[in-house]
Nucleic acid binder design. Structure first.
Length: 566
RNA sequence: UGGGGUGUCGCCAAGCGGUAAGGCACAAGGUUUUGAUCCUUGCAUACCCAGGUUCGAAUCCUGGCACCCCAGCCA
């Protein structure tokens, strides 16, 4: 039910909008926006917000703008702008011609600030950062007025103009809203709304400005300018809402959007904070923003996740105000559900063990048809080659089999997927006792049919040793070994979330064998390697190089569960 | 006795005064040339706790308790 992309989710934000529609608020219009700051790549938490904002716009016949909240040029750049646009599109959402930057409004924002000063609702304050902090008071004690709070309107007007003209050094003064230094809500204790920043080149406005507006001031006005009806943001902005409303009321703008807060997504065994993701990248703890272990959109894409799976995930987790930590199993089920339906089946041997089929002619090669999907005939078939030498996986053979083992054992039989039943006659070992080869014999009367006199339970995958291609396969696992790496209980022993990185999160298998048809795989294309999992050809793959396949996710593994219990 | 929020199954989450949806996870069966998929079944006499209102409360009221967020010239 929650799987269908066509079913409308039910959540408190949609209830509010439904109510607004019946009361005729906003003339029945719905306008949302996705407002990222271009100071990093988007992560799965942003996907939730994107799906929410664009999803609502879509379902209510409204619009959703993409607006970059680019008021802090120190941390932002064009690479991030481009990466974000790319990721939103890739996820399947379109802002059409509604691409905006908060920096588009710098002039208007400046004029509004002048308006505020004229109303005696803003003043230039010469206190430095530490002094402002001291004057702010604490959570339980009120703050006290700045000595500059009662400057005249004219004086403030002149000072602010000089700030803009570049007459003051960074930090020399700020423009502050004049609200209430004794407010129990700290956000209302005369917040700074403009600061001075010399010597930075803004990625959109260049060096046109040396003063930059702050988030609280910018965001509500940007929303208002764009005619946003419902401004959706995360819970930590809840006590900024009075400030959001204060600016819009003082400025007497014609559009006053409603800010609604929802809880951000937390994913087990991952961090979803831009600060931390930036650290992982900057300190080289991962290979980059698109490292397949990263919970970034770019990382998930490189890992082999599909937009559809991610959209489905966002729908499944819902939207509430409750603090939550979603299990990785939900995400994994989403990609399995998608790929089970769409990925072609192939065979690949990850841990090769040579098998000689002793009664199979050395010069013979058979070309066997194999279905690309067991349930979907329209996906067609491909040809696989069989010869007297094949590779199977080391885990599919056991000299001393555990209970319920239905793979190959000495003297036992197993079916080669899409081919014949073989029996293991002999185990060849090296001087150290390591198994290096198996000698088997095949039953020629078992192609496409089961033997009548006996039951062969196991089926294993394989590739022809004479035909297989070499490949590197990268097995990815969760990046962190702790379910909540950034929670205080996980780090209270003084360890940092970075100490909780799973050293086994990437295992590279350099010498794997894959079936020849995989030579035609396209970069980024996903396959199911039967009995192993879903894999995708790395998007950086260049034709002619040894292919690298990334494991997207394993198959559900009932056998592993049984083994664990034993 | 600073302010703002949140509490429904292990994890998400519907529910909006008429007697606890769904998904994931888990468990047990069945089909199967993937120990996959698919199918069937089970899984909250109970909604943080305690009172109260009502014929009837997860939903309303009162009082507790627990947890989260806020003291950037970040967003």
């Amino acid at each position: 039910m929650t799987d269908g992309e066509n079913t409308r989710p039910s959540n408190f934000i949609r209830h509010i909008i439904d109510e607004d529609l019946v009361t005729g608020k906003n003339d029945g219009c719905v306008a949302t926006r996705f407002p990222p700051e271009p100071n990093g790549y988007l992560h799965i938490g942003h996907a939730k917000s994107i799906a929410l904002n664009f999803g609502i716009a879509n379902d209510y016949n409204g619009t959703c703008n993409l607006r970059f909240d680019d008021t802090n040029p120190h941390k932002e750049n064009k690479e991030f702008v481009n990466a974000i646009m790319n990721d939103v599109h890739w996820l399947g959402f379109d802002w059409q011609d509604r691409l905006y930057f908060a920096s588009d409004y710098f002039k208007q924002l400046y004029d509004y600030a002048v308006q505020l000063i004229k109303k005696n609702k803003a003043y230039v304050c010469d206190l430095n950062a530490e002094q402002i902090r001291a004057y702010r008071g604490t959570l339980t004690e009120p703050g006290k007025d700045s000595p500059y709070r009662e400057r005249t309107v004219d004086e403030n007007l002149e000072l602010f103009a000089r700030m803009r003209a570049g007459e003051f050094q960074d930090g020399a003064c700020v423009l502050r809203a004049k609200i209430d230094m004794t407010s129990p809500n700290i956000n209302l204790r005369d917040p700074a709304i403009y600061r001075i920043r010399h010597g930075v080149v803004h990625h959109q406005t260049g060096e046109a400005w040396c003063i930059y507006p702050m988030y609280d001031y910018t965001h509500c006005i940007s929303d208002s300018i764009e005619g946003i009806t419902h401004s959706l943001c995360t819970l930590e902005f809840e006590d900024h809402r009075p400030l959001y409303n204060w600016f819009l009321e003082e400025l007497e703008v014609s559009c006053h959007p409603q800010q609604i807060e929802f809880s951000r997504l937390n994913l087990e065994y991952a961090v979803t904070s831009k600060r931390k993701l930036t650290e992982l990248v900057d300190e080289g703890l991962v290979a980059g923003w698109d490292d397949p272990r990263m919970p970034t959109i770019a990382g998930l894409r490189r890992r082999g996740y599909t937009p559809r799976a991610l959209r489905n995930f966002c729908q499944r987790i819902g939207v509430t105000k409750v603090d939550n930590i979603v299990e990785m199993a939900v995400l994994e089920d989403c990609i399995r559900t998608d790929l089970n339906e769409t990925a072609a089946r192939r065979m690949a041997v990850l841990h090769p063990l040579k098998v000689i089929i002793t009664n199979y002619s050395e010069s013979d090669v058979e070309e066997l048809p194999a279905a690309n999907h067991p349930q979907d005939e329209v996906m067609g078939t491909r040809v696989i080659q069989l010869s007297n030498e094949i590779y199977i996986d080391q885990h599919d053979f056991a000299e001393v089999p555990p209970k319920k083992f239905k793979r190959l054992t000495v003297g036992g039989e197993v079916r080669l997927r899409n081919a014949y039943v073989i029996r293991c006659d002999n185990v060849i070992k090296d001087a150290h006792g390591n198994i290096i080869e198996l000698h088997c014999s095949y039953d020629a009367d078992t192609l496409g049919k089961n033997p009548e006199d006996r039951k062969v339970k196991g089926v294993i995958h394989w590739v022809s040793a004479k035909h297989a291609l070499q490949a590197e396969i990268r097995l990815y696992d969760r990046l962190f070994k702790h379910p909540t790496p950034d929670a205080s209980d996980a780090t209270k022993d003084g360890s940092d979330y970075k100490d909780l990185i799973n050293s086994d999160s990437l295992r590279t298998l350099a010498h794997c064998y894959i079936e020849p048809s995989l030579a035609e795989a396209q970069a980024g294309e996903q396959f199911q390697f039967e009995r192993e999992g879903y894999f995708c050809l790395d998007s950086m793959h260049l034709p002619g190089n040894v292919p690298v396949f990334n494991r997207v996710v394993t198959l559900r593994d009932t056998w592993a569960k049984i083994e664990r219990k034993q």
